[in-house]
Design a protein around this nucleic acid. Structure first.
Length: 282
DNA sequence: CGTAACTCCTGATGGC
DNA sequence: TGCCATCAGGAGTTAC
């Protein structure tokens, strides 16, 4: 389940191994993922040169020199792997797209659960799925106040839980279940709180916590990329130490440092698990 | 308009 | 050991 840091890590990997390369082979092994894979994907990619890669929220954009951009989402189980191409290549299980470059690299899109998507749109436009997306959460310190005001104003309009709001990509881009749980723990805010009960000061804490957790995760992802040939987002997760996510019934680390023993709780919100410490998080 | 439920999918896990 | 039920979850879409 790649979230912003994993997607960023993958994007950087792709950047380092594929930029300026020319696509000479495209093999699509399936007609749809979450949405149909465009029928003209082959013809758009064929002979195109890759200008660069960007990321927007959890989407990766591949900008081509033919005025077309490829939009990629990894869903929950998607990954992209780049490796040198050789003739003994064996198709991976759930590999839906294979792209070869003139320079000898092989890019594979693999997604067992097929919640991901691949689409094409003209480079001078914004893809419809990106139009209403909220701002990127990683910002310079000088913009924390401005961002907090924006977020606070949005939260004031919402009755749903702060947990659900932070997962809403239209409010903030890039956060998934794990990082929302962790950010709320750092900010000492209960995931159960109604969004409109969060004060401006608390919003500021949340904004800071999001910065901290995402920056740390990207760093972990970057350092865990053995070499840029592999663009496997999961590796980033493995390096991270979670405080609450997946830690139901384990001791809260923050409480332990204060000599208290509190067990992490798990609850379900909007069909997703939330993990939190009800002593630290209020 | 906002919110919640529904939907897609496979692999891992737990109970019997 | 096998089989079934359950869960995991991103996010667009639909329904209310």
């Amino acid at each position: 389940m790649p979230e912003l840091p994993e997607v960023e890590t993958i994007k950087r990997g792709l950047e380092q191994s594929l930029i300026n390369q020319t696509i000479v082979s495209v093999k699509c092994h399936r007609d749809h993922l979450r949405i149909p894979i465009p029928k003209n994907l082959d013809s758009v990619l064929m002979n195109a040169q890759i200008i660069n890669f960007t990321r927007r929220g959890k989407y990766i954009l591949i900008h081509l020199n033919n005025q077309q951009t490829i939009l990629i989402h990894l869903g929950m189980s998607g990954k992209m792997i780049v490796r040198p191409h050789n003739s003994s290549y064996i198709l991976q299980k759930h590999e839906h797209l294979t792209v070869l470059t003139k320079e000898g690299q092989c890019l594979s899109y693999i997604d067992p659960r097929r919640f991901g998507m691949i689409d094409i749109f003209p480079s001078n436009q914004t893809h419809r799925l990106l139009v209403r997306m909220g701002p990127e959460p990683i910002i310079p310190k000088t913009k924390y106040s401005q961002f907090s005001s924006y977020l606070y104003n949005q939260l004031q309009k919402k009755k749903q839980s702060i947990k659900s709001s932070l997962l809403d990509q239209h409010l903030i881009a890039g956060l998934g279940n794990i990082y929302v749980c962790e950010a709320l723990f750092l900010a000492e805010i209960s995931p159960l709180r109604p969004s409109n009960s969060i004060t401006l000061e608390e919003t500021f804490h949340i904004v800071k916590a999001i910065q901290t957790i995402l920056t740390k995760a990207i760093k972990a992802g970057g350092s865990s990329m053995r070499d840029y040939v592999h663009s496997d987002g999961k590796r980033g997760y493995f390096q991270m130490q979670w405080n609450v996510y997946g830690k139901e019934k384990e001791n809260c680390s923050k409480c332990l440092t204060k000599g208290k023993k509190t067990l992490i709780k798990r609850t379900t919100q909007a069909g997703r698990s939330s993990f939190y410490c009800d002593t630290c998080q209020r």
